[in-house]
Design a binder for these strands. Structure first.
Lengths: 189, 189
DNA sequence: CGCGCGATTGAGTAATTTCAAATCTAGTGG
DNA sequence: CCACTAGATTTGAAATTACTCAATCGCGCG
């Protein structure tokens, strides 16, 4: 199962067995049941998580309107945390909960920093990963600003076809920044 | 003037004179006049740019609707490039032009990679910078999805008050994902 | 002085939201 | 295996937000 993590890092840079085992030794395994919270608003965020199995969503709820904004889904091979709170050591402004039973690998900020210092490859991996994240976010931002509800949904289907039958439509609507009713009307035609 | 770059990197990690001079030696200075293009759609992107002086905008124009989406402004102390094209060595999908006369420091991808390998601090700097970028993009995305036109504008004023009188309202409207008419109506009341 | 660009204003229109109600579905306990 | 319930989805109608198009205004610059 930890092979998934190895495979993931090796998309950026190859590792020796020794290097990978050293990296892996800094992670703790964690299991959570469906509906359980991984990160809760107003609490400190001690870990970043790599998803080995399952599906989660990260969302923030606007206290005023009561609406939810889902800013990320994560399935096998993805990372998830409240990046800002994790890096700054501040309290989380978002929630993360499990859409399915989950198995995760967790790492603390200090272990991550230590890994980066000990192993240049790991620092490099983090750099590249963050840059890919920026690129993906930029595309999503553009789609959100430029595309109509229909275009956003069609793009989502193209990009994440495997999420369609794993995640309730309500959540997908929220991720795409539209009401569930609007999303529902899109595929009547 | 290159002190700005030093100061910028030292927000992440302190540098010796020697280290900074080594870093600086990989950058080329470049000057551009107002309205000049720094990066043009469909061309290769050989450099990432650090802004020493001036103001630029990065935008993509939708060929279908003819509308512009401004995905970034950059002023002194900011970086700008087509990140995706720069990293992947592919052709740009966006344009970047100068809103004012500009002075830039340019670095190639191979020099940047070389710097990262030679100097752990530089690799680390890139990692942290990319992570900050992700955090900022996530916030902007949230504001764009959750906020009304008015809220987005008010947030912009709070966050970038110094850009208000430097950038035409038309561009700000495009950055905020609304028509210039809508923006104009916001501050009539 | 007059040109041209950016900003503003008005009126009608299109896309999406909101609220309310009806329908469907999967999982649970009997 | 069936009835029941909670959650998810769909549908309809009214309301809202922001857009488009068109006209006008204001101002800096040659």
């Amino acid at each position: 199962m930890s092979q998934l993590l190895r495979h993931h890092i090796e998309m950026v840079t190859p590792l020796t067995d020794e290097e990978f085992n050293y990296i892996l030794s800094h992670f703790k395994a964690r299991k959570l049941k469906k509906h359980a919270y991984l990160i809760h608003e107003d609490e400190y965020v001690n870990y970043a998580y790599f998803v080995v199995k399952g599906c989660l969503k990260a969302f923030s709820s606007d206290s005023k309107s009561g609406k939810e904004f889902i800013y990320q889904f994560a399935i096998e091979g993805w990372w998830i945390t409240d990046q800002e709170a994790f890096f700054r050591g501040s309290k989380s402004t978002i929630n993360i909960d499990c859409i399915e039973n989950c198995e995760l690998l967790a790492i603390t900020l200090s272990d991550q920093e230590k890994l980066g210092k000990d192993l240049w490859k790991y620092e490099h991996f983090m750099q590249v990963k963050a840059n890919w994240g920026c690129i993906a976010l930029r595309k999503r931002l553009q789609m959100m600003i430029m595309g109509s509800a229909k275009e956003r949904y069609e793009q989502f289907i193209l990009q994440y076809p495997h999420l369609l039958d794993r995640i309730p439509k309500t959540f997908i609507a929220s991720y795409l920044g539209m009401s569930r009713e609007t999303l529902s009307r899109l595929y009547s035609f």
